[in-house]
Design a binder for these strands. Structure first.
Lengths: 209, 209
DNA sequence: GTCTATAAATTGATAGAC
DNA sequence: GTCTATCAATTTATAGAC
C-alpha cells in the first residue's frame, strides 16, 4: 500500500497551515496511541499536547476512528516506502544476503525513528475496530510480501538452508526488530549496532553448513 | 516474582466456588485485555463473557485496576514458573546451549498456550497506570534475570561469540518469541517446529567461527 | 481555523434486595 | 454470591460564536 497519497504523507508538501496542523495532530495522536493504546488515546489528550481543544480536531478529521486509521496507515507507509527506496538504491548485482542485511537495518532504524506511528500500526492492529483493522492489515500484507521476496531470493542464492520455514524466519526477524521500540535506549546501543548484532545472528544462523 | 501466591495462581487449589469464579474472571479478563487493550477491556464485556454482570465482579476484586494487575502478574508468573521448573528438571550437566534451546521452546509454548494473560503482561505494560506498571515491571526484570544468566552461561561455555551484545541478543530472542502469539496458527506450524527453527537460527547464529 | 457549550452515550463504582 | 438500580465522571461528536 504505497499509494501516491502515502508518499505525500511521508514527505508532506509545504501546503497551507491546515496541512501543517494536520501533521502535528497525527504526530500527537501517534504518541498517545503508543502510550495508552487504541481505547486509551483520548481526543482531549491528543489536542492538549499541541495546544488545541478536542473539538477543533474535527475540522481536520471526520472522526476519532479516521484519525487513528490515518496514523496507522502513515506509520506503516513510512517504513514500507523507506525500505523500497533503500532497496532500489542498491546496485543491481547486490547479493540477496546483503539486501536482507540492509532491510534489517532499514526496518529497525525506521521503527526507532518513526516509532510512534509505525509501532502503533503494528501493536494496535488487534485493538482497533474491524473495518479499520481490515484496511491497515492490507498494508501489512503488502509490506510482508516485500520481506517474503527478500527471503525467497536469499534462499535461491543459497544463503538460507532448506530446513527452516521462511514464514517463521520472517516473523521471527520482524518480531525481534519491532520489539526494539519498547526497549531501545539511545545511551545503551546505537540502532546501527543493534541492527548489526541481529542481522549477523540471523544471517549466520540461516547459512547452510 | 515467583511468590507462593503466584505458584498458587499457576495451579489453583480446589477451593470453594469463589476461587473457581475468580479464575474464570481472570481468564475472561485476559482475553478482553489482549483483544481490546487496557482501556478497551470493559468490565461489562468481561462479565458478560462468563454470564455475569459487571457489578458482580466487585465481590472478587477491589477495582478494575486490581483485576487487570492480577491478570498481568499471573500471566508472567505462569511463564516464569514453567521455565524455572523446566530448567530444574534438566540433568545438572546439561550444556548451556541446550539449556538455552530448552528455554526458547518453553517460553514459546508457554506464550502460545497461556498466551492471553502472558502477552497482556508484556504488550500492555506501557498502557497501564504507573503504579501497576511498576509492580508488573518488577516481575519482568526477575524473569529477564533468568535469561541473562542463561546467556552468560552459554557465552562462558564458548557457545556465544564475543562480538555480540548479550542484551540485544536477549531482547531479540524474546521479541521474536513474544510476537508469535499474534501470528501463530495451529494449522500452519506446531509450536515445537517454530521453536526448533528459531532456536536453531539463534544458536547457530551465535556460535563462534 | 479554533473555541465554548452542550447533547448523548458509556463506564467504573456503590448500595441494597434477594 | 449475584443482580438491579443508580450516581458521578468521562468522552465522542455537534452547533454556533468569533
Amino acid at each position: 500500500m504505497v499509494s501516491s497519497s502515502a508518499l505525500a504523507a511521508v514527505e508532506p508538501p509545504p501546503d497551507g497551515k491546515a496541512e501543517a496542523t494536520r501533521a502535528r495532530i497525527l504526530d500527537a495522536a501517534a504518541r498517545a496511541l503508543r502510550a495508552r493504546g487504541y481505547a486509551g488515546a483520548r481526543l482531549a489528550d491528543i489536542a492538549s499536547e499541541i495546544g488545541m481543544k478536542a473539538g477543533s480536531l474535527y475540522y481536520h478529521f471526520d472522526s476519532r476512528e479516521a484519525l487513528v486509521e490515518a496514523v496507522m496507515a502513515r506509520g506503516l507507509d513510512y517504513v514500507h516506502t523507506t525500505l523500497e527506496r533503500r532497496l532500489a538504491s542498491l546496485p543491481a548485482d547486490t547479493p540477496p544476503p546483503v539486501r536482507l542485511e540492509q532491510a534489517i537495518e532499514t526496518h529497525l532504524v525506521g521503527m526507532l525513528t518513526q516509532g510512534d506511528a509505525a509501532s502503533a500500526s503494528i501493536k494496535l492492529i488487534w485493538q482497533v475496530p474491524p473495518d479499520v483493522r481490515a484496511r491497515v492489515l492490507a498494508g501489512h500484507r503488502a509490506y510482508g510480501a516485500l520481506w517474503k521476496k527478500l527471503l525467497r531470493d536469499a534462499r535461491r542464492a543459497g544463503a538460507i538452508r532448506d530446513d527452516v520455514d521462511l514464514s517463521v524466519v520472517r516473523m521471527a526477524i520482524l518480531g525481534a526488530l519491532n520489539w526494539a521500540v519498547d526497549w531501545y535506549r539511545p545511551e545503551r546501543a546505537s540502532p546501527a549496532a543493534i541492527a548489526r548484532d541481529i542481522s549477523s545472528m540471523v544471517l549466520r544462523g540461516l547459512e547452510a553448513e
